[in-house]
Each structure stands twice: as structure tokens, then as C-alpha cells.
Design a protein around this nucleic acid. Structure first.
Lengths: 230, 230
DNA sequence: TTTTAAACACAACAGCGTTATGGAATGTCT
DNA sequence: AGACATTCCATAACGCTGTTGTGTTTAAAA
């Protein structure tokens, strides 16, 4: 009395296909029939493995958080924790720019696709902040940040960078106030507002820029830069 | 050789119906058939008046920016421009909380519904910042903010408040770091980072809280508070 | 009044998520 | 080995979606 077992690789393969379709052709390409055709099977695979399309999307969102975390974990602690913090911000923005559609789905709240994140998923999203929290604590220990609540500082960093990134992906930041310029000034502002001295913060933010290539130089995800409009 | 003219009220009526459906029943309720049924006509009205569903959504987004502007224009200049600035931030957040689904569509970037904002629409969205820009200029004039670029200050305010609001609507800000607490501390941080003294900023932010009831007390939009998950 | 072009109703098409049905495959038990 | 149970998946269908023909009604201009 035992069943037939399916290939355990099909489930992640479907998520990969979905993520690739989302990145390459936008949200409209996310359909059971399209995914099944790409996988060479019928639409039923989605239901045997996920129960519903929304569940596949949720798994893809989890994959999105995993990619984000992959960026964040690349930031290794150095003697300059403020530089590390700035680099974490750069990592966050780089991940969003590398996976714009996926990032949009991750934080879309209630999307017309009819999927919604569970509380566990949101918890998972918040958990990604631990890297930032730890870094804030090291900024305290180094005397660079005003001693206080590391989680609070992490939240403030998250809010500011997330706000910039979402407006950037929405196409709202242009010309004299382009995302890149705003981001640089914002990083310094954040560090200063957390307690660092202006000259030290500027130097550390500049130092973090130097570390970008060596930190994120390698492959770091098959992420394809999908164009905003399909 | 002249055509039949339709009732000029039907077009805004359709937008109103769509906005109400979005607020009351979420994005899933936005369909031509549902809207037509609600209006007592056939689905063709959408195509005679808008050409496509996506165009109706875009018009609804414009309506969303109009509502946002209605909130912002309620903030009247006083002798304390920093308090005005904080109140503008509160207005922004109140509008988003009053029309959560509409706000999500406004900034969803590329939504699965297959609509995308035009550059003109984004320009319209950016134009909403003029109130904040003017207020920043008055903060300069009053010697409260470090003299500088008013548009830059406005962008930084926008980014920070938008970041908090989107994470709040996404359900990511909870318990000890709930949106309300974070928002209060963030307002002070923003003012200080713009150049205001800490004690003055705290006082002005507190003063802005006192002005909320009298400023936004009235009706201010038929906006219904739609629940996040349908 | 006749003409004419826009507005709308109705029906249809392709596509969507989902489900019912049935066959094929596989691990376990007799 | 053979029988069985149980899962996987293909096929077809249901109700829904946006969109588009087709044809009719309607109001304004000639």
C-alpha cells in the first residue's frame, strides 16, 4: 500500500521556470499553462505539487527572499561596521535591481494574481533583517552609532532603502534626483542619523562603494534583468 | 453628420465604481463584467469609454493621486513649517491607509493586471511633491532646515514615508516596531537629518500630531478601508 | 426628414485557474 | 510472482477573464 513517487527535482524546477518566466516576460507570463508547457507537462503538475497557482507564487517569493539573503550574506564583517552597513544597503538595492519583477511580487501586498503571503512568509521576510541587526550591533560596539536598539536601526535602514528601491523600480526617480545619486546621499544621511559623525560616515560609505566589485563580482544568481514593461 | 453623444457622467461613474470595488472587494473584483454589472450596462461601455481595461485602471490611478493631493492640500501653512512638513507626512500615510488597495495599484510598478503607467502618469505622481517642495523651502526660509535643495529634501521625505507605508500595508511592521511608533520616530529623524535641532523637531512633530484632527476631521473622500486579504 | 457616426447589447473567441475523470506507474504486502 | 493501494499526470470540461466582431439603437447634423 504505497504510492508512486515523483521526481523530487520537479518541484524546484517548476519554481525555477516560474521565476525565469517572471523575469524574462513579466507577470503576465505566470500561468499554469505556460509553466506546464515550459516544463513539457500538463497543467496538473502545478496542482499535484503545489495545490494551487498561488502556492507556487508563494514558493517563488520565498526563493526571492533567499536570493536577497544570498546578497546580504556576501557582505563580510570588516573593521569598519559602518562600511559594512552601507554595503548591506547596496546589496539590498542590487538584489532588487537584479530581480525587479520578483521584488515587486514579494512586496506587492495584495496582487491581482490572487495570492497573499502568510504570516509565516512575512516572518521569513523579517528574518532577513538579522544581518542588518547584527551589523547595527557591531556599529554600537565600535562606538560609531549612538547606543540604542539594533532592531530599530535595522528597521529604519530597511524602510529607507526599500522606499528608494520601490520608487526606483516604479520609475519615479529621474534626472537630477536619479536613484543612484539619491542612494549615495541617503546612505550617508542614514549613518549620520544613527549617530555616526558626518566625515566618518562619508568615508565609510565611500569605502563601501569600493567593496562592491569584489563582494558581488561573481555570478550571484541566474537573475535576468527583466524590463519593467513587457 | 454627427454622432450620438453619451452621458458625460458615465466615464467618471465607471471610475468611481471601479475604485469602490477595489476598496471593498480587492483587486480580484476589478473586471469588465463586474463593473458593467454594477453600472447596469454591458461590458462594451468599458471599451467605448476607455478602449481597454488597463486604461480604466490608469484613470483610477490618477484618481488615486488626486485623493493623495486632496490630503496634502488640507495641510495649511502655519508659522511652524516643520510642523507643516510633519503633517504632510501624516497626510501621506493617512491617504495610503484610507485607500490601501488603490495605493498598492498606484505603486505596484508592473501588476499582473497588465496595466502600466505612462511617463505622463509618473510625472503626475511626481507633481504631487510640489506641496512638500514648497514646505521645504519655507523650512529653509525659517532657518529650521539647513539651506539646500528643496526638491532633494522633498524626495528624501517621500522615500522614507513611502517606504514605511508600503512595508506597513504589506504587513511587515509589527509589535515592538509597529508602523505608528516607527513613523513618529522617523518624522523626527527626517527633520533632524534635514537640519532642524532635535528639540525643535520633536516639538514640531508633536505639534503636528495635535493638528491631525482639525485638519483631517471631515469626510475627506468616500474612501472605504478595504481589508488587506480579501 | 434623411443621413451618419457614435454608443451600446449580444454573442463569440482565446486564454485563465481550477476540477473531475481516468489511466499509468510504483512501492508494499500477500 | 501477483495483487493491491496510492500517487502522478494527461485529457477534458466548467466558469471566469479581457477583448472583438456584428448588428441595432440613438441622437445630432444636413
Amino acid at each position: 500500500m504505497s504510492p508512486r513517487r515523483s521526481d523530487p527535482r520537479t518541484r524546484p524546477a517548476l519554481v525555477d521556470i516560474a521565476a525565469r518566466l517572471l523575469a524574462e516576460e513579466g507577470p503576465r507570463a505566470l500561468s499554469t499553462r505556460r509553466i506546464a508547457a515550459e516544463a513539457g507537462t500538463s497543467t496538473m503538475v502545478v496542482y499535484t505539487h503545489f495545490g494551487a497557482m498561488s502556492e507556487l507564487v508563494r514558493e517563488m517569493v520565498r526563493e526571492g527572499f533567499a536570493r536577497l539573503e544570498a546578497y546580504l550574506t556576501r557582505v563580510e564583517p570588516t573593521g569598519d561596521p559602518v562600511s559594512d552597513m552601507a554595503l548591506l544597503g547596496r546589496a539590498y538595492r542590487m538584489n532588487a535591481r537584479a530581480n525587479p519583477h520578483l521584488y515587486a511580487v514579494m512586496f506587492s501586498g495584495a496582487s491581482p494574481a490572487g495570492f497573499s503571503l502568510s504570516e509565516a512568509d512575512r516572518q521569513h521576510g523579517r528574518y532577513t533583517l538579522v544581518h542588518v541587526v547584527d551589523c547595527a550591533a557591531r556599529c554600537f560596539a565600535a562606538g560609531r552609532f549612538r547606543a540604542g536598539d539594533a532592531e530599530l536601526v535595522a528597521h529604519q535602514m530597511w524602510i529607507a532603502v526599500h522606499g528608494l528601491v520601490t520608487l526606483e523600480l516604479g520609475g519615479y526617480l529621474i534626472d537630477p534626483y536619479d536613484p543612484a545619486s539619491l542612494f549615495e546621499s541617503q546612505l550617508v544621511s542614514l549613518m549620520v542619523s544613527a549617530g555616526d559623525a558626518l566625515d566618518l560616515a562619508s568615508a565609510s560609505v565611500a569605502a563601501s562603494a569600493e567593496r562592491v566589485d569584489e563582494t558581488f563580482g561573481a555570478d550571484l544568481g541566474r537573475s535576468v534583468v527583466g524590463d519593467r514593461r513587457e
